[in-house]
Amino acid sequence: MLKVENINVYYGQIHTLRDISLEVKKGEVVALIGANGAGKTTTLRTISGLLRSKTGSITLMDENISHTDAHKLVSKGLAHVPEGRHVFLQMTVQENLEMGAYTVPSNVKAGIEDVFERFPRLKHRKNQIAGTLSGGEQQMLAMGRALMSKPKILMLDEPSMGLSPILVQQIFDIIKELNESGTTILLVEQNAEMALQIAHRAYVLESGHIKLSGTGQELANSDEIRKAYLGG
C-alpha cells in the first residue's frame, strides 16, 4: 500500500532522515517508534508531501508520489493526523469535520454521522469552537476530521500525547477498530508499549535512520527495545 525507499530529508544543511525505507501493507497497523528528535514526524511529513526528500522514492498504491503536492494526496486515499492535532481552533467541531471532507463534499453528512458514532463526545459539542475543546476532545476531532476523507491509509502522529491513561486506552481501541474495519494504519508513538501491542509490525527510528524492525511481538520482547523504550 505504502512504500518508502531510501529517502533522505534535509532541514537546510542538516541531514535529518538517512536512507529511510519502510513499508506498510494493506490492512496492517505499522508502528514507528523512537526517541524525541529521532525523525518520526519528519518521516510522516515527507510521506504526506509537506516536506520533500532529496533522493529515494515514496509509492502509494503503485503510484510514485515523491513529487506530488500534499493537497493532492488526500483524494488518493492518504490522511495524516499531525502531531499536536492542528484542528482549526476558531471553527466549530462541525466545521472542522466539514473541512475534513473538503475533497469529498458528498460525504459530509454520512461522514459526520460516522464520526459521531465513533466519538460520541464530539456529538454533544457539535457547535462548540474547537479552541475551547479539551486536549483529548481535540485529538478525537483531529482523528474524526481525517476520517472524513474516507482514507485507505491513515497516518497518526502521537495520538496519545498528553492524554490521561483512560483516554489513551480509548484512542488505541479506536485505532484498532478502524484497522479492523479496513483502514491501513501507520502509527507514530512515544508510548512504545501500547503501540507494539496493537502493531502487526514496527520500525524503530534512531537519529534519522531505521535501527530495527520486526513484528510488534518480536520488538516488544527484544532486550534492546525493553531497555531503551519500555523501561527495562
Binding site: K72, V74, A79, H86, Y102
Partner: peptide, 22 residues
C-alpha cells in the same frame, strides 16, 4: 466551500493542505 477553505488556510496552512485544500 471555498470560503471555509479560506478560513482554514488562514488558520493553519499545513493542516489545510492536509485536508486537500490547494
Amino acid at each position: 466551500r471555498i470560503g471555509k477553505g479560506m478560513r482554514a488556510v488562514s488558520e493553519d496552512k499545513d493542516a489545510a493542505e492536509l485536508m486537500g485544500i490547494n
